[in-house]
């Protein structure tokens, strides 16, 4: 059993010290070296890492993460194998699991929260579980000190956004663009708009995710936000065989770009 660092405390402290936050996403169970990739992105300057537990029907994900999920599933990845892998090592940054609600629902909310706790995971992101349906999960998660990160979208009305920001734990995940995960040629104007909206509502760290594909885009997005989540652009490099070294180089480049602000 490993002891996880608190997501919220770690990110809030870094923010207080004026550091822009960088949270890479990797698909759990993608390749035999995925735990080495996890360590590499932390060594490259990740403040926390999002670990995906793959689901058969990922409706928020574009082609890259769909393929990564399918490859991981085809090679036998399960919630137990991924969380078991995480439990074997200790990491220098807090971990958040990203998965779809059926994985949690099927395991049972209480049992799943226990699994995360045992694996040293301190946060969770469930993109298809809206706050209205979250009550049972949140109380089980709270009992295990698991923080539940909520997403806010460009289409979320202001009053609802305020409620989501207030209830989000760890950080606030601002959806930068209307669409599924994937690389984009340029940063969407909606990314900066939502950053300004949400940072004015809360002192919690606001991270922009979805559509952050390059160091330049990460830097641009971080002007208004407290940091970025980078998923597909990293996972594509892993699908192409980049491995831990490729992941280290890419995340290092993003780190340098956001630090240059």
């Amino acid at each position: 059993m490993s002891i996880g660092l608190s997501l919220g405390t770690t990110l809030a402290e870094a923010k207080m010290h004026g550091r822009k936050l960088l949270v890479p996403y990797i698909t759990g169970g993608l390749g035999t070296d995925w735990l080495d990739v996890l360590e590499a992105v932390i060594a490259a300057g990740a403040d926390a890492v999002e670990v995906g537990i793959p689901f058969s029907d990922p409706i928020m994900d574009g082609p890259i993460i769909q393929e990564a999920s399918q490859r991981a599933l085809d090679s036998g990845a399960t919630p137990a194998s991924i969380l078991g892998g995480l439990a074997e090592r200790s990491f220098g940054a807090p971990l958040a699991v990203m998965t779809y609600y059926n994985i949690v629902h099927h395991a049972g909310v209480e049992r799943f929260a226990g699994w995360l706790d045992t694996a040293g995971v301190s946060g969770v992101i469930l993109p298809d579980l809206p706050v209205e349906e979250m009550g049972e999960w949140k109380s089980c998660a709270a009992a295990r000190n698991i923080e539940t990160v909520l997403l806010v979208a460009p289409t979320t009305p202001d009053d609802r956004a305020q409620k989501l920001v207030d209830e989000s734990q760890g950080f606030v995940y601002a959806v930068g663009v209307m669409g599924v995960t994937g690389e984009r040629n340029a940063l969407a104007s909606s990314a900066r708009t939502i950053s300004r909206r949400l940072t004015s509502m809360t002192d919690k760290p606001v991270l922009i995710g979805i559509g952050i594909s390059t160091p330049e885009q990460a830097k641009e997005a971080s002007q208004d936000a407290d940091g970025v989540v980078v998923g597909s652009a990293l996972v594509r490099r892993l699908l192409e065989g980049g491995g831990p070294d490729g992941a280290f180089d890419f995340i290092s480049a993003i780190r340098r770009a956001v630090d240059a602000l």
Binding site: I59, M60, Y101, P127, D128, L129, P130, E132, E133, L150, L151, V152, A153, P154, T155, T156, P157, R160, L164, V175, M178, G179
Partner: peptide, 20 residues
């Protein structure tokens, strides 16, 4: 009101679709 028939139904969608 929550869109349920007994224990079934609901609105399990990404936040981007919730308003819609």
């Amino acid at each position: 009101e929550a869109g349920r028939f007994g224990d079934f139904g609901g609105v399990y969608v990404p936040e981007s679709l919730f308003a819609a």
